[in-house]
Design a protein around this nucleic acid. Structure first.
Lengths: 326, 326
DNA sequence: CTGAAAGCGCTTACAG
DNA sequence: CTGAAAGCGCTTACAG
């Protein structure tokens, strides 16, 4: 930068001003600086800028596991929007571990990111407030956080679970079981709640097995369920990973879907229409939600909005064959 | 840091030395510094460190699209290793666009990352050499780059395609078609080559349709193929996204696998065993390869190795039902 | 072993 | 509108 200034016979301050648009600069000066920049093919040192500004043009996105297609879709949408805005994205996987989340959020404050999109593994983590305290905006994705200053983009889990129950009840089912995700995760708890509420509303007895949001756990749980002599006639599965397990267990047990067992699954991964039979799913508008999360974040970063905002998004029920009705 | 120095009655240099382990420090000094750090709960400013050291503790990983489960698995493995090493990871999606790759690689040099894992969308891109020129190590993943200074972790695509052909020929097939990925992408070209070579070795005529590594393209191409009156009896599909499309087209056409059409697919996504019939696949050891890529990178970063290294990894053929044999 | 000092490369009040 | 100067918070030769 000193070289540029010398070559253009101006001060470094002027170079900085034309490059950053701060303050007005005489046309002749501007031209000279731009020429010098060109001739020397000068590129500002980002690290020095970062230090001076005490922030980096980076967005942190923290999820439990980017291998879950739900999150890879989310991260991709975030990256798209960030790229267009000139921001970079740092990915952080927590594996649902509060410790890992703590470590990563701390890293993000040290890194002085401009904003964070978080699917929390610990809604009350102090580091969330620390970020907010330091003026780093945060939007909660899928799962709320305790700190009221955060924005949030949430899916309507209760309603979605209810609509699955309605569909199956409408198809004549009474024994509808639910493969639940972890109850200590908001999404898991809400989907379970919606299921139980809807079942009770119909005077039916909820029947819950624990799949912990994992393929193997769900497989084991469903295998056990299928081994019962008087087993359920319908199954609702709480996310795509568990659906993989449920499908495997059902297949192992030689049970035919939807003839012997009707199935409705949360999430709508790319393969949902290709298994046999095609899966009826509750699709969360992940891409739209992630894009919205970024818009909320960008509003905060630019200072266009200071009041917290929270948006809730309905699922869409994609009726295919596995539910056996309609 | 000045505060810490004052409180411990030492110089900032000493504080830096105890915190970074550079040079030896008297035990008494060390204790005083550590106490002061504790009392003030001091955390070094990463941005200042970055500027001073002219690098950031960040690894850049650039792939075509993290939504492809192949790459989300790869990125996850990279992140795991990076996290354990205290590095952060910046994800970059190029969508197979040389321009986007150029932009991102430039960003990564500006960001002064310590290393890059790259699945290139432009093997001869000048930015690759620029990174290497500046001493930033780069390992090519899946696809080689032109610059010989880079390390590389590659899969044995030719051999894998050949083994698929062998399997099908062994099952009595003669008309074996191939749904190819983009030929301008190394993986695509190699898989195609392997297929053609193996076919010719058996005196069979290759029959290639273009799927461009995309679900929709593959679907259209396979639909057309299935509409032929004298259609192939076996199909090899060049990656998981195209398999999704091929499966859909086959299903649309009312064709039964493997009875009317035998199928072998590259990649082994989570759902491969759950479609009907379970898919015979060529599984690339993605996780192992990604971990190895990180080891290579870390060796370079630490300076433990200066000679380029290139490792090649075989696929494993997972015989399930769709191939109709064995 | 320890400290004073320079310097990484910017940005931004502050004067003029 | 322009420039001189301070300062962001570290690290690391260089002396002692």
């Amino acid at each position: 930068m000193a070289d540029v200034a010398r070559r253009a016979s101006v001060s470094p301050a002027t170079v900085s001003r034309v490059l950053n648009g701060g303050g007005s600069v005489g046309a002749a000066y501007r031209r000279r600086v731009l020429e010098a920049v060109e001739e020397l093919s000068y590129r500002p040192n980002r690290l020095a800028q970062n230090l001076r500004r005490q922030r980096t043009a980076t967005i942190g996105v923290v999820v439990s596991d980017i291998e879950n297609p739900h999150f890879s879709e989310m991260v991709r949408a975030v990256e798209d929007r960030a790229y267009r805005q000139g921001y970079r994205v740092l990915v952080c996987n927590t594996d649902e571990s509060p410790e890992k989340q703590r470590a990563y959020l701390q890293t993000l404050v040290e890194e002085r990111v401009v904003g964070v999109v978080l699917t929390t593994s610990d809604p009350v983590g102090r580091e969330i407030s620390e970020l907010l305290d330091r003026g780093i905006p945060l939007v909660a994705f899928d799962r709320e956080v305790a700190d009221a200053r955060a924005d949030a983009v949430i899916a309507e889990n209760v309603g979605a679970a209810r609509s699955a129950v309605e569909l199956l009840v409408g198809g004549g089912h009474q024994r509808i079981a639910f493969v639940s995700g972890r109850k200590d995760v908001e999404t898991g708890a809400e989907r379970l709640d919606g299921y139980q509420l809807a079942m009770r509303a119909h005077g039916l007895e909820p029947e819950v097995v624990e799949g912990r949001f994992r393929t193997d756990s769900a497989r084991a749980a469903v295998a056990q369920l299928m081994a019962e002599t008087d087993r359920p006639t319908a199954l609702i599965v709480g996310n795509n990973l568990m659906t993989l397990g449920a499908l495997a267990a059902v297949q192992d047990a030689g049970i035919t879907v939807p003839h012997h067992l009707a199935l409705v699954a949360f999430d709508d991964p790319s393969w949902a229409a290709l298994v046999d039979p095609p899966l009826t799913t509750l699709a969360q508008p992940v891409r739209r939600m992630a894009t919205e999360a970024m818009e909320l974040l960008l509003e905060r970063i630019s200072g266009a909005r200071t009041e917290p905002r929270r948006t809730v998004h309905p699922f869409v029920l994609r009726k295919r064959t596995s539910c056996g009705t309609g």
